[in-house]
């Protein structure tokens, strides 16, 4: 067990080192960041207010409103009238609409648009992880060492994903700073949730599919083609995971209508519930992982 752990740690460590030296991480990270920034720049200006009201603090005593002065653009806090409170939907009271708008924007970019990019990049790019060992003619050395198939495959997968995760964390920080400067304040919890609960697990699943499914490929070219075949599956999983998260965040506001029912209805019909759909998505991904490992072990036997 101790040997397996030290072998796993070594493979992950050296996978990271080699990925860093190939500059793949730098290029990928730069590409991710530039794309996110580009998308942000392309978004139409947000309208973070209902009329001139940007926040209704209904729970304060007395209730207050924050409104933007039409002439100067300054924010003014004053006591709210019942009429003003009623003009704002219940779900939007006690929330800064400016923050809500920025939050919606970053969440949309990170949890809705970005995973598509991750799916495409990861399934194609990481498919060659194990065929690369064959191309470097290093597999024979691995096979002659007391490294089990599970340790080898698992560590290669984790090594590839660790490299990706570190890149994504840097992109998260970089884009967070950029978004704070250009879009203004946003809810950090939602931002972190978008990365940690959507992008990172999704990237792990895509990496797993890609690395394992292409592990038997004899060449990098074949591995890339296997990656391309996996792409529709990765995008289907994206639809399930990402949309779920989106709807949860966006239910807070009325301005952006959650698209989840629409997409899921298109895919599974109206009867299926949101939760069931997510479970279904996870079942597909986990089941597929087992299928790939099983197929691989059969192939090796």
């Amino acid at each position: 067990m101790a040997l397996a752990l030290s072998q796993t740690a070594a493979i992950i460590r050296y996978e990271l080192l080699m990925a860093w030296r190939r500059r793949a991480l730098l290029v990928m990270g730069g590409f991710f960041l530039v794309t996110l920034i580009g998308f942000t720049a392309m978004q139409p200006p947000s309208q973070p207010a209902i009329g001139d009201i940007v926040e209704v603090n209904a729970s304060a005593n007395p209730p207050t409103i924050t409104r933007r002065d039409a002439a100067t653009g300054e924010l003014i806090v004053e006591e709210a009238t019942e009429e003003q409170i009623q003009s704002v939907p219940q779900a939007l009271r006690d929330i800064s609409l400016i923050t809500l708008s920025s939050t919606q924007m970053v969440v949309m970019l990170v949890a809705i648009i970005f995973p598509v990019l991750v799916a495409i990049t990861v399934v194609v790019f990481f498919a060659e992880t194990i065929p690369l060992d064959r191309q470097y003619r290093i597999r024979e050395l691995f096979n002659s060492a007391p490294v089990s198939s599970l340790v080898y495959l698992g560590s290669k997968l984790l090594g590839a994903w660790a490299a990706l995760a570190i890149t994504l964390l840097f992109v998260m920080i970089g884009f967070g700073i950029f978004a704070r400067i250009t879009l203004g304040a946003f809810d950090l919890t939602y931002y972190l949730q978008s990365w940690l609960l959507v992008v990172l697990p999704f990237s792990l699943t895509c990496t797993g599919w890609s690395v394992l499914a292409a592990s038997g490929a004899g060449s990098r070219r074949k591995a890339i083609l296997i990656g391309l075949v996996l792409l529709p599956g990765a995008l289907l999983l994206y639809t399930l995971i990402s949309v779920q998260f989106w709807s949860e965040v966006m239910l807070v506001g009325s301005r952006i209508t959650p698209q989840e029912p629409l997409t899921l209805t298109m895919l599974f019909g109206a009867a299926i519930s949101q939760t069931a759909a997510i479970q279904f998505g996870f079942l597909i991904s986990v089941g597929f992982l087992f299928l790939v490992v099983w197929a691989w072990s059969r192939m090796r036997a």
């Binding site: 050296y14 080192l17 030296r21 190939r22 470097y136 003619r137 024979e140 050395l141």
Partner: peptide, 10 residues
């Protein structure tokens, strides 16, 4: 092995 390969970046 006869046909030995090494990781070029290490």
């Amino acid at each position: 092995p006869q046909d030995l390969g090494l990781y070029p970046n290490l």
